Amino acid sequence: MIAIASLLFVLFLSLIVVRVAAEALILTGISREAARFQARSAWTGTGFTTAESEQVVGHPVRRRIVSALMFLRSAGLVTAASTLMLSFVTVDERGDGLLRVAALVGGLAGLWFLARSPWIGVWMSRVIARALKRYTDLDVRDYAGLLHLAGEYAIMELKVQEASWLAGRNLEDMRLPDEGVLVLGVSHPDGHYAGAPRGDTVIRPGDTLVLYGRSPELSRLGRRRADLAGEAERRMAVGVERQVERNEKTTTGAGR
Rank of each mutant, 00 (worst) to 15 (best):
T250N: 08
A34P: 00
F48Y: 14
G29A: 07
F37S: 05
V240C: 03
L221S: 04
S219E: 07
L8S: 02
L218A: 02
A80P: 10
G110C: 01
G29R: 05
R235L: 15
G230V: 00
V17T: 12
Y212N: 03
V17P: 00
V18F: 01
P216M: 07
R134G: 00
G253V: 04
R116V: 02
I16Y: 14
V202I: 13
A35C: 08
G222F: 04
V160I: 13
I203R: 02
T252Y: 07
R19I: 00
V57Y: 02
R130G: 04
L171K: 03
A42L: 00
R234D: 09
T251P: 00
A237K: 01
G213P: 00
S164N: 02
V78L: 07
A131V: 09
T136E: 12
R32L: 04
G106S: 10
V238F: 04
L108W: 04
G195H: 08
T252M: 10
D137G: 11
G253Y: 05
R224A: 06
R62V: 03
T90I: 09
G58D: 11
D227R: 02
A21I: 00
G47T: 09
G230H: 01
R116A: 14
P205C: 10
M70I: 15
S125G: 09
E162H: 11
F88N: 05
R256W: 12
I4G: 01
G239E: 11
R40K: 06
S41G: 09
L211A: 14
T250Q: 11
L11F: 10
D207N: 12
F37M: 15
R224G: 04
E233F: 02
T50K: 07
L209K: 12
L27K: 05
F9D: 14
R223P: 03
D207R: 01
V91F: 03
L13M: 13
G199C: 08
E33W: 05
D200R: 12
I65R: 00
Y212T: 01
A103P: 04
G145T: 05
L132M: 03
A39C: 01
A5T: 08
R32P: 07
T49Q: 14
S164W: 04
G110H: 04
D227E: 07
I30K: 08
L13D: 12
S117M: 10
L104I: 06
T252Q: 15
T252V: 15
D92W: 13
Y143L: 14
L171T: 06
I30V: 06
R126G: 10
S53M: 14
T83E: 14
A144M: 10
G180C: 06
A109Q: 03
R32N: 06
Q55T: 01
L111E: 14
D200P: 00
A3Y: 06
